[in-house]
Simulated scan of single mutants.
Amino acid sequence: MKAILNVIWLVFGGLWLALGYFLAGVVCCILIITIPWGIASFRIAGYALWPFGRTVVDKPKGPGVVATLGNVIWLLVAGIWIAIGHVLTAIAMAITIIGIPLAIANLKLIPVSLMPLGKMVVPTDRPFVSTYR
């Protein structure tokens, strides 16, 4: 079922969403000082490409002071606007019955789009994060 939902997601918005995050990551990496946000954007792009069967969790050591400061800057500059975009897209997707799981997946992207630093994407079939590095 996850594979079917991922393919439907890919066709109805996931590919464009992932390309947008990928492009933002490239721009952030070109600007050198924003490389941490670029890496986080690539991580979100991979998650946006194939969201079913995966989830976002905090890194085991937790975000440091620099990551927290970076998240606050990201939230003020881009995060809130991206989150609003996800909410509006989720509302549009939830109009049909088939779109409801896609809308839920879109809402799952909001926390990581608001605070991307200090997060990691893990499979949902492995509940223990301590095995990931």
Rank of each mutant, 00 (worst) to 15 (best):
V122D: 00
K61I: 11
F12H: 04
A48L: 02
D58W: 08
L5S: 13
N106G: 09
V77E: 05
L102Q: 12
P116E: 10
V112H: 02
M115I: 13
Y47C: 06
S113K: 04
L109R: 02
A83Y: 00
I95N: 10
L88A: 06
V112C: 10
L102Y: 02
C29N: 14
T34V: 09
L19P: 03
A105I: 11
D125C: 05
F42P: 02
T124K: 12
G14F: 00
T131A: 15
S130T: 09
D58R: 09
C29Y: 14
P63L: 07
K2M: 11
K108Q: 13
C29G: 09
W16R: 12
A40P: 05
A18Q: 09
K59S: 08
F42R: 09
L69Y: 08
R126A: 10
L10W: 15
W81G: 07
W50T: 11
S41I: 01
V129G: 03
G20V: 01
P111M: 11
P101N: 06
P63G: 14
L76V: 15
L107K: 09
A18H: 08
C28H: 12
V56W: 09
A90S: 10
K59G: 07
I73V: 15
P60G: 07
T68M: 10
V87P: 00
A45W: 06
M1L: 14
W81K: 05
A103H: 07
L15H: 11
G70I: 06
L76P: 01
A78F: 12
P63C: 05
A83N: 01
I82R: 01
P127G: 08
I44L: 09
V57I: 11
G53Y: 07
G13I: 08
A40D: 02
M115G: 01
A48E: 00
V26Y: 07
A45K: 01
L114K: 02
G25H: 00
S113E: 12
V87M: 03
L49V: 14
G38D: 11
I32K: 10
P111H: 05
Y132L: 07
L31K: 05
P111Q: 13
P60T: 13
R133Q: 14
V112Y: 00
D125F: 10
I97C: 07
I73N: 00
L107M: 14
I33F: 15
F128V: 13
V112Q: 04
A105N: 08
G46A: 08
V87G: 02
G99N: 07
V56S: 06
I73C: 11
V129T: 15
W37L: 03
L102W: 05
V87T: 11
F22E: 07
I30S: 12
G38K: 04
L69D: 00
P111I: 06
W16E: 09
M115S: 10
A24H: 00
G64L: 06
V121N: 13
L31H: 05
A24F: 11
K108D: 13
N71R: 01
I100R: 10
G46S: 12
F52Q: 04
C29T: 13
